[in-house]
Simulated assay, not measured.
Amino acid sequence: MIALALATAVSAAPAALFGHRQLRRRKAAAELRIDTPNGIDESGFVRIGGIEQWIEIRGEDTANPVLLDLHGGPGATNTYFAHRTRAWERHFTVVRWDMRGAGKTFGRGEQGTVCFDQLLADAVEVTGYVRERLRTNEVILLGNSFGSVFGLRLAREHPELYSAYVGTDQNVCGGEPDDIAFHETVRRLRSSGKGSAAAKLERMGADPTTWTAADWGLNAKLTASADPFVATMFKKLILPAMWFSPRHRLRDLKAGADGMKFSERVGVESVHFDAWRDGTRFDLPFFIFQGEHDSLTPAPRARRYFDDVQAPHKEFALITDATHFASFWQPEQFLELLLTKVRPVVVAARKG
């Protein structure tokens, strides 16, 4: 859906809009500038897993805890949202990484092997790079949507690498069959006169383990387009963030859209990951902050998994007036949760 919307916007944009885009990008670049004495603002390609992968590190004080952001999609880089989360950088050093198959990493060329296990191995290597580069053992793992699928395994298998796990748009695969969201999408499509689209979903069936990569991509697109809240979010949040990003040229936007299509192969692979079977015990603080209206990764399912989690400290919170991409739709509310729930636990562990 992001790829289609972006392609439509670029092709339809008159010359005046490109001029307006340049003005907005210059303003955003000025607001993103970091000039504090102990600040950091660096980005570039780092050799990870045998290929060059894009990593951005930003924060006003490198003594702050680190947030390692695992983006969703798969293939949907979060680097577009730096302007939305500028306030986070006063309290955390934010690290964003374009995984293989995503964003500027995809635009670089050779992707090597792109699969769930390889992304997991890459994430461990990125974590090591960040710990060494920032000379810290204090890394908070922040999993978004698809990134939260393998973020759970990272946090469970490598508690020595992370000081806490935070899931948002938490995607919980496996467990008891749950086709409520699927049938709600079919209902919404039919009620809005999109009977043929509803029929396509019904022919696919509600069991994601039987889908092809194309089926997985179609379900994601139709689920998003059928939800009016998500449609508003795409129009008011995602497309402006991409279009006015001062750090992304038009060819970067195209690479990002192409990467999402390319990465559907990993999306369909991820549905075979069973979070409950993989384990519900975590040897680190565990948090889930979920959009209350999320139709793509519904909050009740995330809550069911959370209730089964055993961890030395755990907390769950709803982000009000938010659907998917909750942390970027409500960045101030999300920051408040980080500051009042996560950071005190991390700082107390540091003092201890």
Rank of each mutant, 00 (worst) to 15 (best):
A164M: 02
F146N: 02
P344K: 07
R84W: 07
R251Q: 12
L239S: 02
T136P: 00
D98H: 09
L161A: 10
V345Q: 15
N38P: 06
A121S: 08
T127R: 03
L218V: 15
P228T: 05
W329H: 13
A317C: 10
L134E: 00
A181L: 08
A231S: 07
G107C: 05
A348Q: 12
P228K: 05
V186L: 03
F244S: 12
V95Q: 04
L23W: 08
G112C: 04
A206S: 11
H313Q: 14
R203P: 03
V10E: 09
R21Y: 01
T232M: 07
M233A: 09
R133H: 05
D258V: 09
T280Q: 10
D252G: 08
K261E: 13
R21P: 00
V149Y: 00
H293D: 15
L218T: 15
G109H: 09
P14K: 04
D294F: 14
R100K: 05
A275Y: 06
Q111K: 02
P331L: 00
Y80D: 07
A224K: 08
V230R: 09
E132C: 08
E184Y: 12
V186N: 01
S327W: 08
W216M: 12
P37R: 06
E157P: 01
R188Q: 11
A224H: 11
S245P: 05
F328V: 11
T79E: 12
F18P: 00
E31V: 07
F244W: 12
W54D: 00
P331T: 00
E89H: 07
I140N: 02
R187D: 12
V342L: 03
A16S: 13
A241Q: 03
V95K: 06
S196R: 11
W329E: 15
G143E: 00
D321E: 15
V271K: 04
I288G: 02
L339C: 03
G259A: 02
G147E: 01
V46E: 11
F150G: 00
E160K: 10
R131H: 03
M204V: 05
D294G: 07
F328I: 10
K351M: 10
G50N: 02
G175V: 01
S263D: 04
I319P: 04
W54S: 01
A199H: 11
P177V: 05
I57A: 07
E42V: 15
P344N: 05
A102N: 05
G193A: 04
L296E: 10
K221C: 09
A302W: 12
L339N: 04
G39N: 01
